[in-house]
Design a protein around this nucleic acid. Structure first.
Lengths: 275, 275
DNA sequence: TAGTGGTCTAGACCACTCC
DNA sequence: GAGTGGTCTAGACCACTAA
């Protein structure tokens, strides 16, 4: 299934009954998996990590759709030739990564991120008062063009790549407060420039293009609004704004969206929880 | 030990051999622990959660000092009357919460957060270029006074409470870029106003006052510098700055520090990773 | 009642660290 | 070689859900 051409996953400890000798031989510590696809040295991963990768691949390939139920732990264990406990460890890890949802008595499901509570996973602006107003959006423009230098840089694109750009104005509790410039690779989102865009773009990415946003890196700065930006946000030029430079990554950690947001923060703040 | 006057923890499933009948009876789902001390309804927690709480209490009471080694899994299991696997699940959870560090072949240790890599756990400003310059600090003033309204609000203090205030100027890569106003309850940090303050305050809190910072909530805004602030940061008044309003919580989720930072972000950004 | 995930246990082998 | 955490297995009982 992986790491080895054999049908079953190779164990890393435990009394597995396979007759195959140690082949590569080595086991390996635990946490030092690295990732990023290099790992030419030993390339060993614990069994549950291999199960994790196997299931992650199926999620990335949309074998299971969002909201759909997965086979039970026992069925997956039998299919992959590992114990139920090992499958559980992989499923728990995928749940911790917000890719699965497990419900006692019902089953394990592919996470849906268009729920009301999930809107706020990647939207960290909150009204100062503590109200829970969900953001509303108005699309100003959507165009297709050749990628700029910045866009190629953020999205790891080649020179000739084309992108789709979208400008949106978002409001919270009825007040315009965010101006967003969104860029996605045209190749990954064919036809998106002609679609009606929902408020939560990431659910559209998942349902129409099979792209799941798993993570985002945001870089925040305080800036001063330019004339055009200020006009769109209906404030005076020179007002300070919070600039959020976000690159969103899919399940395979490829950058698939660049979003530059300008936020008015007089009655709104960006919430960050450090652990 | 907890939940029950008996010596051993009560199980929630499994074939434990205790003769005591179900007493309270009910089991309970799992995740709905809530916390915050209310939970008068059933108050049930899984065994591993009880072990977690027991060990957390010992950490909060400084039974084990930072850097110190804990008893082995087997010893803890024997002491608490549970299986090694249950202890492991609790230890793994504490490790996930950054309170413990586990090293294969060596043991389990209380996390030390004055290491070089740990400085950045609560310090999210990074040079744009990607350099890893650690911040340096210069204390401008330190005073004791009665708590202001804002301070009482942030730190959940009573009217008569006294606080210690500290103003610091921090620089990154040699450039002054952060002006910090720090407030702590005087009662929790006796004598701190007369101490030399290290660059990493939180290690001082742990080593001298037995207070471990487990979490922090930050609220970010874009603001304009006032004259005094701009002078201290050596820029012109009116320059935009990133305001970080942080409340730090200890192991028992009590607010123990309020920190208001003003950051220049022309060559520095605030890094936020969303998962 | 059957099937699912949630918890708990017991015991095995492995890799790492230190003596 | 002894002791530690890391991984894997097998099997038990529990709580929850739905038919």
């Amino acid at each position: 299934m992986l790491e080895q051409p054999w049908d079953a996953l190779i164990p890393a400890g435990g009394q597995r009954r396979s007759e195959m000798d140690r082949s590569g031989g080595q086991g390996a510590g635990g946490q030092g998996n690295g990732g990023h696809g290099t790992g030419s040295a030993v390339g060993f991963r614990p069994l549950y990590r291999q199960v994790y990768d196997t299931l992650l691949r199926r999620l990335a390939d949309a074998v299971w759709q969002p909201g759909q139920i997965l086979p039970s732990e026992g069925q997956l264990a039998a299919e992959l030739g590992v114990s139920q406990g090992t499958v559980r460890k992989a499923l728990d890890a995928l749940t911790a990564d917000s890719l699965l949802v497990r419900r006692q008595g019902r089953g394990t499901f592919v996470a849906e991120h268009d729920d009301k509570q999930s809107v706020f996973r990647f939207f960290k602006l909150r009204p100062d008062g503590g109200g829970t107003g969900a953001p509303l959006s108005r699309v100003l423009a959507i165009t297709e063009a050749a990628a700029s230098v910045d866009e190629r840089d953020r999205l790891a694109l080649v020179r000739a790549a084309r992108v789709v750009r979208c400008e949106r104005l978002r409001s919270l509790d009825g007040r315009a407060c965010v101006l967003e410039a969104i860029t996605v690779p045209a190749a990954l989102f064919p036809g998106i420039h002609a679609m009606p865009l929902p408020n939560t773009l990431y659910s559209l990415y998942a349902s129409r293009f099979g792209i799941t946003i798993a993570m985002a890196n945001e870089r925040l700065k305080a800036v001063v609004l330019q004339a055009r930006e200020a006009a769109l946000l209906e404030v005076a030029p020179g007002v300070p704004a919070l600039e959020i430079d976000r690159v969103a990554l899919d399940l395979e950690e490829r950058p698939v969206e660049w979003r530059l947001s300008l936020c008015l923060t007089d009655s709104v703040h960006y919430l960050s929880v450090l652990r």
